[in-house]
Amino acid sequence: MTLSNTKRRLVLGAAACLVGLAGVASPALAIETGVGAAVTDDTKHDEKALGIIDAYIETLGGEEMIKSIESTKIVGTMEIPMAGMTGQMTMMSKVPGMVSMTMDLPGFGMTRSGFDGTVGWSSDPMTGPRLMTEEEVDTLKAQADPTIAMKYRDLYETIEYSGEVNFEGRKAHKITLIDEDGDQQIEFFDITSGLMVGQVSNQETPMGAIEVTTVMSEYKEFGGMQMPTKMVTSLGPQKMIMTITSAEINTVEDDAFELPSEIKALVEAEKDG
């Protein structure tokens, strides 16, 4: 996997990672994603932008604290107002890069997905068992890294300070992250708190590349780390509201990420061609 590929997949900021996949911080993951191979060159980045990012990391809980997290379990709700649907979700992550997620939407059923360190997969009542594409797995692994913001210097060709803006009714610093392919990700940091409050990113999905806007709010402390407990994700005119109701740090065991039987069968079938 090339560094450029990694950059393209790093569509989430650390705050989002902390909520969704917090705790997957390890040298192994860094090597796996190629992050560790990069050479830091602060001269190509905007100094003010770097300062804002560093302050953000400190506000989240600090670099050492973030690195001390080995696993997370997050429980919450998800709501899609334009469909009238509300469901439950549980997300777990554990070093080195294991991920498990379940979402239960009434009328749709249980959607599960995960990465056990080797296989990225999903299974839902509509599509059935499915292996993720390499790009999706890359996204998953990268998003599982709460130390992402610490690696921005290496991952992006350019980090620009794009000025002070009004974002969702609050004053925010706008920072533009540009990778070596010219792809952009925009992040917004609250001027007062220093926390990330928004993000505009491009994501790879089975239904093509999509631009998603996320607004983060209502940060709360869990195990010494600040996490946004409300995230509103917009895809075109549609919105999904995710609310975190509880979070546990360093309580998840490895067996939580074991592949379901149908996924094991799928892996075997793929091996056989």
Partner: peptide, 18 residues
């Protein structure tokens, strides 16, 4: 939260009712 999951879920259920 893995936002790509959020996007995918929106993609899957957001068009329901058509």
């Amino acid at each position: 939260m893995r936002l790509n999951r959020a996007g995918r879920v929106l993609a899957m259920v957001g068009i329901a009712g058509a």
